[in-house]
Design a binder for these strands. Structure first.
Length: 430
RNA sequence: GGAGAGAUGGCCGAGUGGUCGAAGGCGGCGGUCUUGAAAACCGUUAGGCGAAAGCCUCGGGGGUUCGAAUCCCUCUCUCUCCGCCA
């Protein structure tokens, strides 16, 4: 893994966008190449010479040479191979350091991405559904959930801490219904293959998708082990094909996976402290694609549409926003955020982030494909997007489907799984 | 958790210090033969860097040696037996 990070051509391409220190180092890739395989003084030439001598000694080993000659040759070779190993060693060190640094270089935005400094530069692409009009003041989802007794914030804080919740009764059932609804939709109607992944992954996987090393502080690590709770199913699913060469005809590969997601939310102190918007543990259904480079932008549109379809069928108002360069994530080349309408605060909030990573993750995780017999393997493009975050979707349902009497209507698509059409407070007549 | 055995090319499998990037088989691809196919026979069939020559890679890392797939250490993973367990 990671060897591809050093591909000189790619690094040269990146050089102009990098800090001076790095780009200087990269400009020397020609010199580096020359030192390795250039002329008579190169490392390869030394290997060649060494091997020839070793072979010659081996040839002579059984007899004809005088012991004296052999011992002299042996001494010379000893010295030679010591120097050779030193040279190899320093090259390895240098390359390891370069690879280490390369892990901190973000992806480059696609040329279609709007330029902007921060979230204010994002561009709304489309809207679907109308925000409902209320004859009363709509409540926040946590107020509704508490009144209905379907989410227990206090006891969750007791048993785990802040930013944890426990769903109760129809609240638990709604979580499960949503989850199944999303998975079924993507499997049946969108042709995805369902994966149920591990929720704990190793450090290589975290590095492969780009969480490490830069975002290590936001991940839960298992004490004493190089293992981490997944922040999203993207990590185990994308790494499914780490260090693999996929047959060209297998592409595009499309996986959908449920996982619990664990995030420290370090640096989010004070933000979204109430409700379901920002938790240390939440449920999410994730869509992941592996495609040929030529297909990845079409795939991004399809993937985003698949995620949107969930909201359409649930009758929730949303908009799609294209992130500008300043708001784009570390690993993404292009991202569409899908934002749900939350009537109590009268804002759109993110419920899905659909990104094309191009070959950023493929390079880190060494995920390639081969189109024909004699063709060299090429890096795939990877994409993923939430399809969707379950907790936030549940929150949006509570707010958008709330009624004056405090009850919440169940979206039609979920009625079969819920077994009721309306969620009522405990003890209320049906 | 304890005891032991392993990890070799797409797969199976030989190789226990020297010319081995690696026998043989299977599978794949190409060809001969055939009306066509099968069988048989011949050839071919890993990855990285490189324009090429070539160099590197036998799970990962380190060591011994003039020389390591082969010996030593370590890590990871797999299997068998015991223990434990949903």
């Amino acid at each position: 893994m990671l060897s591809g990070l050093l591909a000189p051509k790619e690094l040269d391409k990146l050089a102009p966008t990098l800090p001076a220190v790095l780009s200087d180092a990269l400009k020397k890739s020609d010199e580096r190449q020359a030192a390795i395989s250039g002329g008579d003084a190169s490392l390869e030439a030394a290997h060649r010479a060494h091997r020839a001598m070793v072979d010659a000694l081996g040839e002579a080993r059984k007899g004809d040479l005088q012991a004296f000659v052999r011992s002299q040759l042996g001494k010379l070779l000893k010295e030679f191979s010591t120097h050779l190993k030193d040279a190899e060693g320093s090259l390895k060190d240098i390359e390891a350091k370069a690879a280490e640094r390369a892990l901190w270089i973000p992806n480059m935005p696609h040329e279609s991405v709007p330029v902007g400094a921060d979230a204010s530069g994002n561009v709304e692409v489309r809207r679907s559904g109308e925000p409902p009009v209320y004859s009363f003041t709509p409540k926040n989802h946590w107020e509704i959930a508490e009144a209905l007794g379907i989410i227990d914030f206090e006891r969750a804080a007791k048993i785990s801490g802040a930013r944890f919740v426990a769903n109760v009764g129809l609240g638990a059932r709604l979580e499960r219904a949503l989850l199944n609804f999303m998975l079924d939709l993507h499997v049946r109607d969108h042709g995805y293959t369902e994966i149920f992944p591990p929720f704990i992954v190793n450090t290589e996987s975290m590095t492969g998708t780009g969480q490490f090393p830069k975002f290590a502080d936001d991940q839960f690590k298992i004490e004493g082990l190089e293992m981490h709770l997944v922040p999203t199913a993207e990590v185990p699913i994308t790494n499914l094909h780490r260090d693999e060469i996929l047959p060209g005809e297998a592409l595009p590969v499309a996986y959908v996976a449920y996982s619990a997601c664990f995030r420290k939310e370090a640096g989010a102190a004070g933000k979204d402290t109430r409700g379901l918007m920002r938790l240390h543990q939440f449920n999410k259904v994730e869509l992941v694609n592996f495609t040929a480079p030529e297909q990845s932008y079409d795939a991004l549109e399809r993937l985003t549409a698949s995620a949107e379809e969930v909201l359409k069928r649930l009758g929730l108002p949303y908009r799609v926003v294209e992130l500008c360069t300043g708001d784009l994530g570390f690993a993404a080349a292009k991202t569409y955020d899908i934002e749900l309408w939350f009537p109590a605060q009268e804002v759109y909030r993110e419920v899905s982030s659909c990104s094309n990573y191009e070959d950023f993750q493929a390079r880190r995780a060494s995920i390639r494909f081969r189109e024909g017999e004699k063709v060299k393997p090429r890096l795939v493009h990877t994409l993923n997007g939430s399809g969707l975050a379950v907790g936030r979707t549940l929150a949006a349902i509570l707010e958008n489907y709330q009624q004056p009497d405090g009850t919440v209507r169940v979206p039609e698509a979920l009625v079969p799984a819920m077994g009721v059409e309306v969620i009522r407070p405990p003890g209320a007549p049906a």
